[in-house]
Design a protein around this nucleic acid. Sequence first.
DNA 1: CTGTTAGCGCTTTCAC
DNA 2: GTGAAAGCGCTAACAG
Lengths: 334, 334
Amino acid sequence: MNATIKDIAKIANVSTATVSRVLNNAGGYNETTRKKIMDIANKLGYRRNEMARSLVQNSSNIIGVIMPNAATIFYADIVNGIESMAHTNGYSVILSHSGVNGNRFNECMDIMAARKVDGLVIVTVELNTEQVKLAESLNIPFILLSTDTPDNEAPYIKVNDFDAAYAATEFLIINGHTKIGLAGVDPNDRVAGMPRIEGYKKALEDNRIKFHSYMVKFGDFSFYAGKEAMKEYLKENILVTAVFGVSDDVALGIISAAYDHDLKVPEDLSVIGYDNTRVAEMSIPPLTSISQPFLEMGEEGCQRVIEAIHSKKGISSKIISYSLEIRESVKKIM
Amino acid sequence: MNATIKDIAKIANVSTATVSRVLNNAGGYNETTRKKIMDIANKLGYRRNEMARSLVQNSSNIIGVIMPNAATIFYADIVNGIESMAHTNGYSVILSHSGVNGNRFNECMDIMAARKVDGLVIVTVELNTEQVKLAESLNIPFILLSTDTPDNEAPYIKVNDFDAAYAATEFLIINGHTKIGLAGVDPNDRVAGMPRIEGYKKALEDNRIKFHSYMVKFGDFSFYAGKEAMKEYLKENILVTAVFGVSDDVALGIISAAYDHDLKVPEDLSVIGYDNTRVAEMSIPPLTSISQPFLEMGEEGCQRVIEAIHSKKGISSKIISYSLEIRESVKKIM
DNA sequence: CTGTTAGCGCTTTCAC
DNA sequence: GTGAAAGCGCTAACAG
């Protein structure tokens, strides 16, 4: 079996305390014993049992990550950010999926609680008040990424969807568009739906463009939602010169449907996306898109949690800035 | 602080042993005490400390997952598969990134060893013999996903890249193509490079089409590699009527460059991809692609590891079947 | 500089 | 049916 400090202690003829001290660079031993112990440890291929250590230190050095199952591309970046920051700080990452619609969230919390994670990063899951309470009941720092709670009960990092949607719409307006559609959006989505609709509306309003509800096509942020939306504009003879897709997938759906109907982008139709995922640059034409800094969100979210673990202070929320990645899917008209 | 079985025992006026028995449904107690203990546990919001349990049981109920940092889309599916299977079997998942080129693999192993994971799933990381030895030294079941080792020292699940590349090339041939390029491939990649080149060659050969090395454009499986490859065909006046991109990204790069030069896909150029990632269906035109069952690979890989944990037997490798997802990027000619 | 001791929270014999 | 006690591997006082 794997060697323990006991084994090392026995061979080295010292106490386990001394071994522990050496292994942890705790100081208080002379070089000879240090060398002797290290040699034996190496020879035995000793590896510390983090379980035992966690038990006595009452801290696991684990960050828990909870996210939905949906294999949307950008989770990869967020997780990358979290993991790398955790790793740099000597933490491990335990991952648990909360189900497609967050229905398994409570199970996730059970796991995290049982594993005694030191902190928690919750990605995109929409929490109700009860669930926030549940998270709080663990008495560990946690942060939400790319989502928030109705009453700001919990710290989060996200972009301001209202502003970002406003910016996207405004960009189309600046390029001379007035017949602007909004596609693929879920009006019941408090976090990524409603505010984007409102931002779109406000941008129109501020530029004295009348808002028409038929210009807004609801959907679930998917490629198919985009495709359907575009088909509807066409079928219903709604004139749009530009469409704001609430995700890159939606935008690609729009472009795809446009292509099916021999509409060229951006010549006949301008399209703007949201998320600036990897598909945006691979699109034809390359897609102009609102960029969310996912990697950074992961890193910074994790960092804030780790800081909170150490400082035992609360975590502050942050609105992280989006940017507009201008490519070739929007054309200036008039 | 969080309640422990000691607290429960004290309140219930029983021993911790009894509490433990009840909490684990171990039998050997009467209904009254069971009820009493459960009530108290619930009231106190008791959660088992998995750390402590792991320590005594010498098993963590954790599956370790090691994968490269590269945020390629399909990792999400693999991880989903792993996590869901782990969850179903009562295991947690600990995630560690091995760096872009696997350079951090040894660190990962240290983490996994220290956390005493019960099993290990290694995704896409190419291991050398020494690293396989390292993995074996942990004395826990492990499996490789979408990769293998030079001498089959370790169990794996992957598709046969040779066969899949053969099938892709053959599909183009069946559609009348004889001027077929291969693009974006890394000839030094033993797992995903070499066999695909060989499969491509063999398909040509079996159909009496002469192989020309100038038809093969090397690259790193990326969108840009595809773009560059296509540009080179054009610049060097190499006639290709079809190109096999060794990844969907490469295929999209080819399409993108073709589009830049007013070549239409599939009218002027047929393109086939590999991986059937989500971008394949969002491409214009929708991309015909070799499909790898990533979710399934994750699930089955994890399952095999878990089975091996219980049975203490070795894990067998599996060649998992690819399929050809036919969409619209390949045209029949002649 | 080093050893002794106690204990983290839990499971698991072995008694009764 | 239940309790006492030992121990998993480690750290952390406290002595010396």
